[in-house]
């Protein structure tokens, strides 16, 4: 049923599959990403954990989002009450900050499952 080359091939492919893991980990070390949405439309996905600032054009101006080891947050926003800046960090999967006046939303997405039951909606 198996030729000699069959066996060699199967072993080689298993090794190659396993070896792809460190390579993938290298390119995708974090499992969490922040999805930046404007008016509900995703415009950018940024990995969490890197130090960087991203500026996003919303409906009433520029929002600046800072990424660091703690998570992501708004540092500059055209909204008058600075509510989204006061809202602090998003860091866990499912966390959302919605900057109402500029229509910008930060949402943490990831591959991991949430620990506890996540609500379908939030009343606020």
């Amino acid at each position: 049923m198996f030729t000699k080359w069959d066996k060699i091939l199967i072993i080689a492919l298993i090794v190659a599959s396993a070896a792809s893991y460190p390579a993938i980990r290298h390119f995708f070390p974090g499992e969490k990403y922040v999805s930046i949405e404007v008016l509900g439309e995703e415009i950018k996905v940024v990995r969490l954990g890197l130090h960087k600032e991203i500026s996003v054009r919303g409906i009433s101006g520029e929002s600046i989002i800072r990424f660091d080891e703690f998570g992501a947050r708004f540092v500059e926003s055209p909204s008058s009450y600075k509510k989204c800046i006061g809202a602090g960090y998003v860091k866990d999967v499912g966390d959302v900050i919605h900057c109402e006046e500029n229509g910008v939303t930060l949402r943490v997405i990831g591959s991991g499952r949430a620990d506890r039951a996540k609500p379908d909606f939030i009343t606020r």
Partner: peptide, 28 residues
Amino acid sequence: AGGDMAIIGNKVGGSPWVIGVQDPRDAN
């Protein structure tokens, strides 16, 4: 509508919808 909502029936499969109530002092 921004946290004000009407829930029609239950989720398909029979389970209720789960609605989180935001902490008034911590939006997260």
